[in-house]
Amino acid sequence: MASFCDLGLSSYEERVYTALLELRTGTAEEIADQSDVPMGRIYDVLNSLESREVVRRNPNSRPREYSPVDPELVVSRLLEQRKQELDVKQAQLESTAADLLSQIGQKAPIDGKFWIANEDERSLFDGLVNRANRVTDEWMMTWTASAGGLFGLEDPNDEIWPYFGDVLEKETQFKLLMTTQLINILPNDFVEEMADAIDDYPNFEVRITDGVYNSLDIIDQTDLAVYVADPFDPQSILGITQINNPEYIKLVKSSFITHWNGAEQFKKTTGQGDA
């Protein structure tokens, strides 16, 4: 049940004001008897209510008498006072929160999930296939010699390019940024298949750089996956961090474009691996 305490009065103040509404007017002693507020506290309570314009004192009466202010006016005044108090409290809390963040240097966490890789890294390639099926406009990817390389596939040539061919048929813009280290250890037949795909699909581009240190892919600037290398086996994948924060993905895409613009165009003679 609502009470004047909800608007900031103490329990004694509420009892005194309610008693005065019944008495209409009364002395301190009469009000104390009606409200059951101790006589030793009654003057403090009445003075507080008078300062908040909840009761009025008749200066000409002897003994001194008090009367209640109209309830609608009291509720309006108490509500306004309560709002002001809460505004001050909110400002204090916001200032405290800002000070705490400044002290600990904490930033808001990025929205995302971490997927643990199975022992069979083939499952990661299957996961990549599922991700690629969601691409509608653009797919950006980095490949490195670490973080699983080509997803742990024993024969990537027979699986990756047939699948990517299906993806590229959708006319998705596909930019692949590879490290020099990886391109130099790829089998020659894989490199040849990649070169053929570049010739067959104008929407497919490959560039080579030394400035990429992890594997990732970005789908339509809405979905980012970072492939985390196993610290005890850099060529294996520990898991995948999937991030859906648009602002963070925008920053990563900007870095990708910077490295892309500074990378070398892939040439068929680049591959140095075994046939």
Rank of each mutant, 00 (worst) to 15 (best):
D126R: 05
E65H: 02
L79Y: 09
R134W: 03
N47R: 01
A132R: 01
E13C: 06
G105C: 12
L100C: 09
W139F: 13
L100S: 11
Q34A: 15
K89V: 04
Y17D: 14
T96G: 09
K113A: 15
L101Y: 08
K113W: 12
R57P: 15
N47V: 10
Q34P: 00
D70A: 07
F125L: 14
K89Q: 13
E22I: 09
Q81H: 09
R64K: 11
A19S: 15
L73T: 14
I104L: 07
L49Y: 01
L9T: 06
S48N: 03
S51W: 07
F114H: 08
K107G: 15
Y43E: 10
E138I: 00
R56L: 11
I116Y: 15
R41G: 12
W115P: 05
A19D: 12
V129I: 14
G26D: 03
E14D: 11
R134V: 06
E50P: 07
I104S: 09
N58M: 13
G127Y: 05
R56H: 09
S67Y: 04
G26A: 04
P71Q: 04
I31S: 02
V75D: 03
V129E: 15
E65C: 02
I31P: 00
V88I: 06
Q84Y: 00
V69S: 03
M39H: 10
T25Q: 15
Q34V: 00
E138N: 08
R24K: 11
E65Y: 00
S51T: 05
K107R: 12
K107V: 14
E85A: 07
L9I: 06
